[in-house]
Design a protein around this nucleic acid. Structure first.
Lengths: 296, 296
DNA sequence: ATGAATTACGAGAGGCGTAACTATT
DNA sequence: AATAGTTACGCCTCTCGTAATTCAT
């Protein structure tokens, strides 16, 4: 014995709205239709649910109980639909999380090429711990970390390295050096954006917040770089991509913390699905490496 | 967005039976109808639920998830129906619990007269504590106790008294006395039934189990009384009702524990519903009392 | 050839809306 | 008069069953 969902939905609306008229407007159906439906519901249950007094209708005790359980049944029905949709969407999208912005930009074209039927979703997330938790939650299918996790149930592959640089005006005293340390940057006012992932932790730890002019948007950063002589953070990867305004020189920061190695990680159980992505990434790595060798 | 219950029911059957044919037999509908329903379910959800390979159909990953949630939604739907039925039935029946069998027999005609639209259900239950717990659980709407509870949320009215007697053969030595004590019964073998409510506790406490020949059925007791000269327990109420075989005399037991006063109790919130029952019981009590006076 | 799913077609049930009616404020 | 619920009638969707079809074992 089951009650059709449309009857439960209509009954719930009547219980919520108090009158058939209001409920019928809420449901966008006619009042007579609702009247008939409620009669049918009572007939199917074989139980009276309403107290009917001349052109006034209200729930009786049984009706109040029924409305309570009807809400739960509707909730379970809606939850099914939502979960199925969410699962289906998760099959068609791949979400990646990264501890740093550059790997996202470089990975997206690779993913688009090798998973053409899937929607991409990428997110920046400061800490490796949160990224790994998100991976286990199925919030992400793939994460880019700056450490290699040891867990057996994870598959991890080295991706690329990034070296932090600082770009200063050619007139700047530091411009004569060919490298610098965080210690040597203290007291300088340095431009950067808030969206740098784990680099934010590194720079805050090494320099302190008073030295950093943190911008919320890339646009604001770009304008300030153009309009001032203030130094800003850069990296070998950004420089390779051609990101160096005129009249600036870039100096590598020699502290070990200014160098990062990125690792692409997914659940070991999903490794097969992303096989082609990993092999493409391996190919890129070899190519970059040999390119580096020939340039030296 | 809701899925009609009949679709969930059919989907659950398919998930359970494995093939459309078996499921259609299980549901007592035709196979093409099921085939169409499953297509419709997929279309309404906008999601593929099955892996279809030439005349073979099976759930895919999304389908397995959906089946899981469908079961829950069906369960919630069925629970609503069950709870509504149970509540409706509870409105149409009144269950009474009693610590002793006699009050049940005497109350039933009163209840039938004053609650003619309700089904009666009566139960014997040894201890007052369990009866009160059942009252608060809505397992009983009315209980007969041998103590008057003091709780504010209960309504309690004195019902009637019962005096325990023992019936012995006229030739029996005790037959010359006009009363007896439990102490005076020790060593005697006395017949009784198991269905005497709290009297079982009293007699076991006062006499010990070795003196009692406890029968499981009323029939067995009656036959043994007829076929032997063994003494058996009786009461003033039973005697009034004419329950005294020939060649026996009944002696009252004078211990205070051999006298009981019964109290009819209901939840104070339900007192109004049973008003006419209580007033009839009060009437009976007064009548019996005055009858007693005139007989003295 | 048999078993299992789908397609095609017609029948019947039932939900819906419009309109008319009743009863209360 | 206006508001709220019920009854009457016709439309139209939708579920079901029968029969025919496809595909594979």
């Amino acid at each position: 014995m089951l009650i059709e969902s449309y009857l439960l939905e209509q009954f719930e609306a009547v219980a919520r709205c108090g009158t058939l008229l209001k409920a019928s407007e809420d449901l966008h159906i006619s009042q007579p239709s609702l009247s008939r439906s409620m009669k049918k519901l009572e007939e199917e249950l074989g139980v009276s649910l309403f107290k009917r007094e001349n052109s006034k209708i209200s729930l009786n005790e049984t009706g109040k109980l029924a409305a309570d359980y009807a809400r739960r049944a509707l909730e379970a029905n809606r939850e099914m639909v939502e979960r199925v949709w969410a699962f289906d969407r998760s099959l068609r999208t791949v979400s990646i999380g990264s501890c740093s912005p550059f790997p996202i930009n470089s990975l997206i074209p690779v993913l688009q090429e090798h998973l053409p039927e899937r929607t991409l979703s990428a997110e920046l997330m400061g800490s490796d711990e949160k990224l790994l938790a998100g991976l286990r939650n199925h919030l992400y299918q793939m994460v880019v970390l700056h450490h290699c996790p040891e867990d057996k149930d994870l598959f991890c592959q080295r991706y690329l390295d990034e070296q932090l640089y600082i770009s200063v005006a050619k007139e700047h005293p530091l411009a004569k050096q060919n490298s610098v340390t965080f210690e040597g940057l203290k007291g300088l006012r340095i431009l950067m954006t808030a969206h740098v992932g784990f680099w934010m932790d590194i720079t805050l730890e090494k320099l302190g917040s008073s030295d950093l002019l943190i911008q919320n948007s890339m646009d604001a950063l770009g304008e300030l770089i153009d309009a001032s002589n203030l130094p800003f953070f850069n990296s070998d990867q950004m420089l390779k991509a051609g990101y160096q305004p005129p009249d600036r020189v870039a100096l590598p920061i020699t502290d070990p913390e200014a160098h990062a190695t990125y690792w692409i990680t997914c659940m070991a159980s999903e490794q097969q699905k992303f096989r082609s992505v990993f092999s493409a990434v391996r190919g890129n790595m070899l190519r970059n490496h040999s390119l580096g060798l020939t340039l030296e």
